[in-house]
Structures are given as C-alpha cells and as structure tokens.
C-alpha cells in the first residue's frame, strides 16, 4: 500500500468530506493507519477546515431558491420587453403608451386605424422572442405591479414614458396625438 502513498494523499480532502466511494474509503483508511505523512496531512486538513462559514440562517436558505427563480424570470421578461420596444421608433412607443391611458380622460372616437394596431404589442412587433411564449408573458406580467411592468421603458433620468405621458395635461396629450398623426401621414 505504501507504494500508492502519493495517490492516497491526493484523495484525503475527498476522504474527509466523505465523498469517496466505500471501497476507496477503506483503502485510504488502511493506508493512513500506517503512514505518518498522511496522518499529518489529515490533521492539517482537519485543522484548516475547522473555520466554519457562519450560517446565514433558515430564512436565507428558504427564500433564496424562489428569489433566484423570480429574478431570472423578471430578467427574461425585461429583456424581451426591451427587445420588443427597442425595435420600434420612440414615437410608436409613445403612441402605444398613450393608448394604455385611453381609458382615462382623453377618449378619442376618431382614432385612426394605424394607431390602433399598436393596441396589441404582440402584433405590432417583428422581433423574435426566443423561447418566451405568450403564455409566459401573460403569466409573468400578471405577477408584476404597474411600476415593475413599466420599468423597462425608463430613460436615463429615471422617468418612464408611462409617467411622462401620465403627467401631461389633456391639451398636451392632444398635441402629442396630433404630432403623431402628422408623422404617420408623412409616412413615418
């Protein structure tokens, strides 16, 4: 057995962690019994490993899996929204968000059809969503609050289009609407 000293010594960390298969384990044990050098190594390793990582507590272990899952899903959605809106001109995004507000004050009856197609973001888009299905988006958006949902459109000042549009007076919204209409007539 002494001839395999180097090989056995190499297995000691795994031996101490208990990750070796049984037959190898007994081989290691019978070697260590008669090998001073390996016994030293075991003592040394045991010593170093005595520094325990402090336990962050049950709450951490119990919530982490869900936190990771939600973060991954949100990021996936954020990416697809950015992709979705990234492919559209800013005016179109504004129009889309304007439509989101249509239930509030400025209901227009003579809304042209070109604008109305933006009502459904899925049909207004060309981009490839990769593996995100419509079902995913519905499910994930249902879990998000309005604020989270509109986060991807935030500009560098931290204002979202949603909030900007919402802060406009009805006169300003009419103005914006007319500008959009003009742009579309011009073929924009």
């Amino acid at each position: 057995m002494q001839s395999d000293h180097e090989g056995i010594k190499e297995l000691l960390p795994e031996y101490l962690r208990g990750t070796l298969p049984d037959e190898v384990k007994s081989e290691v044990e019978s070697h260590v019994k008669d090998c001073r050098d390996c016994r030293d190594e075991v003592a040394f390793l045991t010593e170093i490993v005595s520094i325990e990582a402090p336990d962050p507590g049950d709450l951490f272990w119990k919530t982490l899996p869900r936190k990771v899952k939600l973060t991954v899903e949100e990021k996936k959605l954020g990416f697809s929204l950015k992709y979705l809106f990234g492919g559209l001109p800013v005016a179109a995004v504004a129009a889309l968000l304007l439509l989101a507000l249509i239930s509030t004050p400025v209901q227009r009856k003579d809304m042209p059809a070109q604008v109305l197609i933006f009502r459904d973001p899925l049909t207004a888009s060309v981009p490839d969503y990769g593996d995100i299905t419509e079902k995913d988006i519905t499910r994930i958006t249902a879990q998000l609050t309005d604020e989270e949902l509109y986060l991807p459109h935030e500009d560098f000042m931290g204002h979202s289009y949603y909030r900007e549009v919402a802060s406009l007076s009805s006169k300003e919204i009419e103005g914006l609407y007319e500008a959009l209409e003009k742009e579309q007539r011009a073929g924009g």
Binding site: P65, R66, V68, V72
Partner: peptide
C-alpha cells in the same frame, strides 16, 4: 430549458450551501 421555471428552485436548493460556503 423546456420552460419549467420550478427547476431553478430545485437546483438552487441542491447547491446553495456549497456555493455560499
């Protein structure tokens, strides 16, 4: 990859202690 997000939780649960350490 097939779309079952719960698999994430299982993987995290399995390795979280080792990765934290």
């Amino acid at each position: 990859i097939a779309g079952d997000a719960d698999a994430v939780e299982d993987l995290v649960m399995k390795y979280q202690r080792q990765i934290y350490a």
